[in-house]
Each structure stands twice: as C-alpha cells, then as structure tokens.
C-alpha cells in the first residue's frame, strides 16, 4: 500500500563522498520537483499510521495513564472476541457500504440517463441533481434530521399522514436508524455516481446510437444493449470510489443518530471516534483504526488496479 520512498542513489564521485546537499542538487530535476510533496505526504499520512499500529499494541487509557503497558495483540483479541459493539459495528459497516454504494449507483444511473437526453432546462435539472453532493454533510444531515425526519414536524411524516391512509407517522431515526442514515448517504452520493456515469455515457459514439435508432430500437433497448454494457467500467470506478469515500463518512451518523439507538447505526470508523475521543481508550481506538484500514485495503487495492488500467488507456 504505502510505497516506501526509494533511496536516492545519486552516483557518488570516486574521490570523496559528496555532501547530502550536493547529492540532492545532482538529482534529476524530476525527482527534485516531486520531493517536497512526497516528503509532506509521508510525514503527515504515513507516520501517524505507523504510530496507530504501535499504539494498537498497548494498553493505554488516557484516564489511567499509569496502567499503560505493551500488551501485544490483546486489544485486537478483545475487539474480535469480547466486544459485542465491535461485531455489531462490523455488520453495520458492511450493510451501510453495500446498501449505500449499490443504491447510489442505481439512483445515479437514473439521474444520468435522465439528463443524458435533450429537454428544456436540462442544464438546470443537472445542477439541481448535483447540489446534494455539494452541501456540507453536517448541514445536510441536520436539515434531514429536523425538517424531514422529525416525527411531528417533519415534512416526510406530514406527507405520509396526509397521503397514506391510517395516520402513518413512524419515528424514522428511532425505529429505522440504519435506513435513515443510508437514505441520507444515498441522497448525497447519487450525484457523484451520476457525474461519473454521465461522463461514461457521453463517451459513447453518436454513430453507434444513431445506428440502433435507425434500426428502430426503443429507449430501453438502446440503454440495455448500448449504454449499459459500455458503462461497466464506469460503474466499477463509481462503486470502488464510493466504497472508499463512504466508509469515511461519519458526519451524517454523528448528526443523525450519534450511532444509536444503542449501537444500531454505529459503523467501525464511528466506533474509532467513540473509543478514542469519548472513552479515551487509545489502545483499542488504535486497534480499531488498524482494522478499518485493513478492511479498506481490499477495495483500495481493487481501485488502484482499475485506475492503473484507466491511465494506460488514456
């Protein structure tokens, strides 16, 4: 995952070992241009991760620093075998990711197909559809929580009460916490999928489309036989990027449900926050962080491979 910084093997002159600055100055210019950004990224992102691994092997609660000790894999063992919250959060994470990625891809596909046709105000509709992704997640989540999901004063329940028979007025966040969080995630990420899929749709050659239309294909047949097969790579890209980014979203969870009721909407990244910042448990928080990264590595690896293929083709 982390590519180690290669040693800069400038050729030393035979008579003397040149100084560090001298060797640096003799590097090809390309390397010198890369160096500042590379060093920055290593220091700010890799160093903390190495420390996370180190802390994950220790018993260390900031409330009881005197009991700090090296405990090997105990934190992992505890989380995996004796912590029911961990298991629930692991299941929730899987459910959230699969549901949110799949549904936002599906909705994004619908959005993209809709605005991929000419109609009056197409530009405005596309802008409207993109907007949820631009809205700060904190603000969006609060709007959903109070103005839409609220059982008494929320618009959604006003709608269900006045349209559906029998005064249906569920407590969304209390009774369907996972569904509510997923709804907001899908609302936020469908525009992202739309943008990627739209780029894919617009790279289909017009001649091919014309040809099937001349043959009398309906809009559905054209979508099924031409658009969809062409999109598979864009769907993969959207799905993998979505997976990687949606795992990182904890603000909607914090704003909407605080992981509850109990831990019904707690995901692993959210649990890291709780362990470390609310119960001051550095060791277990770090161990959880490592586990989150290990889980992400699967999708990250797939994503890197796909990006590699895409670069080669471009």
């Amino acid at each position: 995952m982390a590519v180690a910084e290669r040693s800069f093997a400038g050729v030393p002159r035979p008579e003397e070992r040149p100084s560090f600055m001298r060797r640096l100055a003799n590097q090809p210019v390309g390397r010198l241009l890369i160096l500042p950004a590379l060093v920055y990224a290593i220091l700010v992102t890799q160093l903390p991760f190495l420390l996370t691994i180190w802390y994950s092997l220790q018993r260390w609660n900031l409330n009881r620093p005197e009991r700090r000790a090296f405990v090997g894999l105990d934190n992992y063992w505890f989380l995996l075998t004796r912590d029911p919250t961990f298991r629930e959060a692991a299941v929730n994470t899987a459910v959230f990711i699969v549901a949110a990625v799949f549904l936002s891809l599906l909705l994004g596909l619908l959005y993209a197909e809709l605005v991929n046709h000419k109609f009056p105000g197409r530009g405005i509709v596309r802008t409207l559809l993109i907007t949820p992704f631009l809205i700060m997640p904190a603000a969006a989540s609060l709007t959903w929580k109070y103005q839409l999901f609220n059982p008494n004063f929320g618009v959604i329940n006003w709608f269900t009460r006045s349209v559906l028979p029998g005064e249906v007025s569920p407590n969304w966040l209390g009774n369907f916490p996972a569904g509510s969080v997923i709804t907001v995630l899908v609302w936020r990420w469908a525009p992202f999928m739309m943008l990627i899929l739209l780029a894919g749709m617009q790279s289909i050659s017009e001649e091919v489309r014309e040809a099937v239309r001349v043959d009398g294909a309906t809009a559905w047949q054209e979508f099924r036989d031409i658009t969809f097969p062409h999109l598979s790579r864009f769907l993969q890209l959207g799905g993998l990027l979505g997976t990687v980014f949606i795992v990182q979203e904890i603000d909607p969870i914090y704003m909407l449900t605080k992981g509850g009721p109990a831990s019904q909407s707690t995901t692993l990244p959210y649990l890291v926050y709780e362990k470390a910042r609310e119960s001051f448990d550095v060791g277990r928080g770090a161990a959880l962080g490592v586990i989150v990264v290990l889980i992400s590595i699967v999708s990250i690896t797939l994503l890197l491979r796909l990006l590699d293929r895409l670069i080669k083709e471009a």
Partner: peptide
C-alpha cells in the same frame, strides 16, 4: 500510486496518534 493510496486510507486510521501528536 503512493499519493492516491494516502487519500483512500480512512482518517479513522490516523486520528488517535494525530490527537496525541
């Protein structure tokens, strides 16, 4: 690819040491 892999890592993996550092 090193650069992009740093962006894909969840911040949850770094938050504990960052807080301490």
């Amino acid at each position: 690819f090193f650069f992009i892999s740093t962006r894909f890592m969840p911040p949850a993996g770094a938050i504990v040491p960052l807080y301490i550092l």
